[in-house]
Design a protein around this nucleic acid. Structure first.
Length: 307
DNA sequence: TCCATTTGACCCAC
DNA sequence: GTGGGTCAAATGGA
């Protein structure tokens, strides 16, 4: 557990370093734009913009990793998922702890899978839903999607799990799009680490961001977590909540943990604007720092020995 | 008619 | 044996 905390602290430090590096690059870029005279050896505005994007991409990756770790751990504690937690609360301390394997099955993480958290399930790609299940210890059903261009041999899939009452979804992707329609909208060049928990890292190439994807079924996707049945496979008349798509920016602006790069941003007039808009919704460094501080500190509220 | 969604059943990893 | 992932028939909407 101590290792987990240290790990989170280290990630926080890395995040701050990346954000500061990005800020420095932005300052240099600003200076360059105000004074466009360049020396032979001076760094180009294009390179600076790339540096900025790289810093934010990596920062988002780190933040994603941290929040995913915390979510998993906190959820495990909340539902008594820990083996020791369940046994100690029963008052049968002398009883030998039987390892319950229920719910332990997880799809094997491959180098071609990654996860992110987003306030919206929309990512600009065309997805077709092929299944939905209520997952053990999950309040909300998990939905399964595959690329609408499966006929083209595209093997891209994703799983969408609403985390809690807040509009925050955990989206797990499997395989990249190979179809021509959507591959430019996907995050690629993601970072994968051997540890399944660490595999949540991802990064995005800013130059491929699409700013106005709005598939027709977005509203349906946003509605589908509104009602949950108690059956194993959920069957229900979906509640027809009416979420205003214009509120998405408000959600983003409130400072989400990890942001989808395809959230429509204010369209720029030039290439710089297009690329920079990938940074558009990121929380400020201070608030991000506070968020991480808060989440790491929350670990103190949980019995560390239980982990 | 076509396509997307729903949902019960089945398969398989654990 | 159980839970998670997928299949495929049924259903509904455009």
């Amino acid at each position: 557990m101590r290792n987990l905390k240290e790990n989170l602290r280290a990630k926080e430090k890395r995040l701050m370093e990346e954000l500061l590096a990005g800020k420095n690059s932005a300052i240099q870029l600003r200076t360059l734009l105000l004074n466009p005279v360049q020396d032979e050896g001076s760094i180009s505005s294009l390179q600076l913009s790339k540096n900025i994007l790289r810093s934010f991409d990596y920062g988002i990756s780190i933040a994603s990793s941290c929040t995913a770790i915390l979510s998993a751990k906190i959820a495990a504690v909340d539902c008594g998922g820990g083996d020791s937690g369940g046994s100690t609360s029963s008052g049968e301390g002398t009883k030998k702890v039987v390892k319950d394997r229920r719910g332990c099955y997880k799809r094997k993480r491959t180098s071609d899978s990654w996860m992110k958290e987003s306030p919206t399930v929309e990512d600009g790609c065309g997805w077709r839903k092929y299944g939905q299940k209520l997952i053990l210890h999950s309040k909300f059903p998990r939905c399964y999607y595959r690329c609408t261009n499966k006929s083209q041999g595209c093997k891209a899939k994703k799983q969408v799990q609403k985390i809690n009452e807040d509009p925050l979804y955990q989206i797990t992707y499997f395989s990249h799009h190979t179809c021509t329609d959507t591959q430019m909208m996907l995050p690629h060049d993601h970072i994968v680490e051997p540890d399944p928990m660490e595999s949540n890292l991802l990064s995005f190439q800013g130059s491929n961001y699409n700013h106005s994807p709005k598939p027709a079924n977005v509203s349906l996707l946003k509605q589908e977590f509104e009602a949950v049945d108690t059956q194993r496979t959920v069957g229900f008349p979906y509640a027809k909540s009416c979420l205003n798509t214009s509120s998405w920016h408000g959600i983003i602006g409130a400072g989400c943990k990890v942001l989808s790069p395809t959230i429509p941003a204010v369209p720029g007039d030039d290439d710089l604007g297009e690329e920079a808009s990938g940074l558009y919704s990121c929380a400020s460094m201070n608030s991000f720092h506070g968020l991480l501080d808060m989440e790491v500190d929350q670990l103190g509220d949980i019995d560390i020995e239980e982990w």
